[in-house]
């Protein structure tokens, strides 16, 4: 024997941290989020927007379709019309508030549905592995090969205009990328030692998925889905802009952008207002999803 070891069990060198004894995972995530000023700021903006949009009928000074042709294209700051009026003399503030309901709805709904559908398919593919994985992922690749906007326009165009069809086409667009993310995250977790150890205990597939896979993959998939909300809003607005989404006179940011196009030289500020709304929402969603990703990384 060349090496001798001391006998007896000693405590490891690293002393236990005392302060964080009851530290659950989500509490730690919350604490890290609280330190992230950008995410907090963007989250606050989103919450403010959501509240204003939700209570649009109470907050908005006018109805979204009330207009008078004599008040057309009043500039920003006109008394009684804080953000001016559009090409048909409708109050811009009221239309933006009401339009947000449509924009947010068609922005979030497809992503939510795609998160459920694509997430499930991706987790199944990742957990099953082998031939099932192969079949699911190759079919996904076919959809993935189309540029997203083009696919949305094609599906929406063949289904016809309307809010339901727009949502359906966007859902179809977002399912493949979510499947891919879900599959890769699940495959990664499935091959980790703790999943192997669970199999070694003789646990069934259901127990392994519920206890070991889902809690470790839902977070990353959810964060990715959040980052798609901004894209979804932009594409939905694009569909409306092309006349494939919401139909006039309903206010929707993309549609407003379209109808205000002609006013871009006479009232450029007013014509860009819906675009600013889309931009702000999309950027805020992206920052929040980035912040969530960082905060949810356990090792950080």
């Amino acid at each position: 024997m060349t090496t001798t070891y001391s006998s007896g069990i000693a405590e490891d060198a690293a002393p236990p941290k005392v302060a964080e004894n009851d530290d659950t995972y989500w509490r730690a995530v919350g604490r890290r989020l609280m330190r992230d000023k950008v995410t907090l700021f963007c989250g606050a903006i989103l919450m403010l927007m959501a509240a204003l949009i939700l209570f649009a009928p109470l907050v908005a000074p006018y109805g979204p379709t009330d207009g008078s042709i004599v008040r057309r294209l009043k500039p920003i700051g006109t008394p009684g019309h804080l953000l001016g009026t559009d090409e048909l003399g409708r109050d811009m503030l009221s239309r933006l508030l009401h339009g947000g309901r449509y924009s947010w709805f068609v922005g979030i709904t497809p992503v939510a549905i795609a998160f459920l559908v694509g997430g499930s398919i991706g987790i199944i593919a990742g957990f099953a592995g082998g031939k099932i994985n192969m079949a699911i992922m190759r079919v996904t690749d076919v959809f993935y090969a189309f540029p997203s906007v083009l696919l949305a326009v094609a599906v929406s165009g063949s289904l016809g205009a309307g809010i339901a069809n727009a949502i359906m086409s966007l859902t179809i667009v977002f399912i493949p990328p979510i499947i891919r993310v879900a599959e890769s995250v699940t495959t990664g977790v499935r091959n980790l030692d703790y999943a192997e150890a669970a199999r070694a205990t003789g646990a069934g597939a259901r127990s392994i998925v519920v206890v070991h896979i889902l809690p470790n993959v839902l977070g990353p998939i959810f964060v990715y889905a959040t980052s798609l909300v901004g894209v979804s809003m932009i594409v939905a607005s694009g569909l409306s802009f092309l006349g494939l989404g919401i139909k006039p006179p309903d206010p929707e940011w993309g549609l407003m952008l379209n109808t205000l196009r002609s006013a871009i030289y006479s009232q450029p500020m007013i014509a860009t207002l819906p675009g600013i709304c889309i931009f702000m929402t999309s950027v805020c969603f992206n920052f929040v999803s980035d912040g969530l990703r960082t905060a949810m990384d356990v090792r950080a």
Binding site: Y25, L192, D193, Y194, E196, A197, A198, A200, T201, G202, A203, G204, S207, V211, H212, P215, N216, V298
Partner: peptide, 30 residues
Amino acid sequence: RQVQMVFQDSYSSLNPRLTIEESIAYGPKV
């Protein structure tokens, strides 16, 4: 049940979302 394994990577062999007690109790519960 009669054959169990200890892996090299002590970190990746524990589910980060389970407490130590839950991780140990998982096998018997199964």
